[in-house]
């Protein structure tokens, strides 16, 4: 796999950075790839907006910053308004449909996947794990990291006592992502 640039964005407290850490650690420790994680600091995060930039690659990562994200995971309307236009041509945008009410239009240049992450998180127990639901869909739709690696990474990074909840959230997101991927395949066959 060549360089994959990912941007995760939302607001502080959603676990955006944690999601970035989970993916990055999964890629590095368990999938034996390279990864670089950077994040927004200071007023940008205190003002509410929060983002994590992640690069995954089998090659050495020279430029450590995300230049044009191929995958963007968005968990707030503000983050959508601010960043969505930056997605690379041919890239994909994953949004938490419960938090981004102004649903983006699908365009030829990029795929848009709406995931009801907050609702799915509530279904498994707590809305706080919506980030992990998004992570599940991310794994299903991008294939950038192995399911096994993400699960191990989740177990090592989430607070003690919340492991099961987080794994369930991941599974929910993963299944939903798989369905979206299948729908997309069907659509492409029809057209």
């Amino acid at each position: 796999m060549k360089r994959l640039e990912v941007k995760l964005a939302g607001f502080g407290g959603q676990g955006i950075i944690l999601a970035g850490q989970i993916i990055g650690q999964a890629a590095v420790l368990f999938d034996q790839k390279n990864a670089v994680l950077t994040q927004s600091y200071g007023p940008a995060s205190r003002g509410g907006a929060c983002s994590a930039d992640l690069i995954i690659s089998e090659e050495e990562i020279l430029h450590p910053l995300v230049l044009k994200p191929q995958v963007m995971v968005v968990m707030s309307q503000e983050a959508y308004d601010r960043y969505a236009s930056e997605v690379a041509e041919g890239g994909m945008l994953l949004v938490d449909a419960d938090l981004v009410p102004v649903l983006p239009r699908r365009s030829k240049k990029r795929d848009v996947f709406a995931i009801p992450a907050t609702r799915l998180a509530e279904e498994v127990g707590r809305r706080i794990v919506a980030n992990i639901v998004m992570l599940g869909s991310f794994a299903a739709l991008t294939g950038a990291i192995s399911v096994e690696a993400v699960k191990r990474s989740i177990l090592s990074l989430v607070p003690k006592g919340t492991e099961d909840l987080n794994l369930q959230a991941f599974e929910r997101g993963y299944e939903y992502g798989k369905r979206l991927a299948a729908d997309k395949r069907e659509r492409s066959i029809k057209t």
């Binding site: 850490q21 990055g24 590095v28 420790l29 390279n34 990864a35 670089v36 994680l37 950077t38 994040q39 600091y41 990562i61 450590p64 910053l65």
Partner: peptide, 9 residues
């Protein structure tokens, strides 16, 4: 700052 804040192996 970039080297200080970036997370990597």
């Amino acid at each position: 700052e970039v080297v200080g804040h970036m997370t990597e192996r």
